[in-house]
């Protein structure tokens, strides 16, 4: 398996008035053409990890790593221009709420076309055809109509599909999805995941799926990284989740109510200070 992304000892620090906040404290993993899940609760540093790889860390923060390389390119040493070119063209990112990541005053179709034309030299007509094909690929039934709609005119699920279409139009090799379905209804959530799954496997992309939902991630991904307080506490195959060793992973898995498994009261997580050490 070829390695797409290599992360070694990634650290993200935020200087604040009260001192340094260490959001990510030495995260290491590598990604091939596979689906990798990063799971953690709020404040675990999972989103900051994704942002650091993408180069979207807020400017006041400091990002350090022994190695942060995408396809052999050192991302931290790369000039801003090269990173911008990578972003969108070879690495794409989907965020939680399409409402905030789509431009509200531009039609969906035009946004997709613009994205394509910033990364590839294609004619207007061809760009439109490819955008329509992409909208179809994300299972939008009437692509020609949706093409001309503005983001506020579509539902959350439709918006997220449009977002995926926009992100995939330039044919990226790696995608980072930060809670891509958390704002969606459960049934829509599964549709969107199905589309994502199909496209990722068809195109042989590497996917980093960031989520708070351990069970969802394990049913979707090949491999899972569990983060706690800015560190990786456990890395395991999704199929072996039941045999998780770390008490945090086990606790997280146990504390969710499940249909057909009555437990009153629910087991709660007994946080140990040494987990964060």
């Amino acid at each position: 398996m070829s390695t797409l992304l290599e992360v070694d000892d990634l650290r993200v620090n935020f200087p604040t008035r009260t001192g340094l906040v260490q959001a990510v404290r030495g995260v290491s993993f590598s990604l091939g053409r596979e689906r990798l899940g990063i799971v953690g609760e709020s404040g675990s540093g999972k989103s900051q990890t994704g942002r650091a790889i993408m180069g979207l860390t807020p400017p006041q923060a400091e990002v350090k790593a022994k190695k942060l390389a995408f396809d052999g390119i050192d991302l931290l040493a790369a000039p801003a221009r090269q990173r911008r070119a990578l972003r969108g063209k070879r690495i794409a990112m989907i965020l939680q709420d399409p409402k905030y990541s789509l431009d509200p005053v531009m039609s969906i179709g035009r946004q997709i076309v613009e994205t394509l034309r910033t990364h590839e030299k294609v004619g207007k007509a061809e760009a439109r055809d490819r955008a329509l094909a992409m909208l179809e690929a994300v299972q939008i039934r009437d692509p020609a109509r949706v093409f001309d709609l503005h983001p506020h005119e579509v539902s959350g699920g439709m918006g997220q599909r449009a977002m995926i279409a926009m992100m995939l139009i330039a044919g990226p090799e790696m995608m980072i999805a930060d809670e891509p379905t958390s704002a969606l209804d459960v049934t829509v959530q599964l549709d969107v995941l199905g589309i994502l799954d199909k496209l990722v496997s068809e195109r042989g992309m590497g996917l980093i799926f960031i989520s708070h939902d351990l069970r969802l991630v394990s049913s979707f991904c090949d491999r899972v990284i569990v983060m706690y307080a800015g560190k990786v506490v456990e890395q395991l195959k999704a199929s072996e989740l039941r045999d998780a060793q770390h008490p945090y992973t086990r606790g997280l898995l146990n504390c969710m109510p499940r249909i057909g498994f009555e437990r009153h009261p629910l087991p709660v997580l007994d946080r140990k200070p040494e987990w964060a050490a």
């Binding site: 609760e41 997280l252 504390c255 969710m256 109510p257 009261p265 629910l266 709660v268």
Partner: peptide, 15 residues
């Protein structure tokens, strides 16, 4: 809420 906190709050409500 986070899953682990959710469990605590649900338990509290039941109690």
């Amino acid at each position: 809420l986070d899953a682990s906190v959710q469990a605590e709050v649900l338990n509290l409500l039941e109690e």
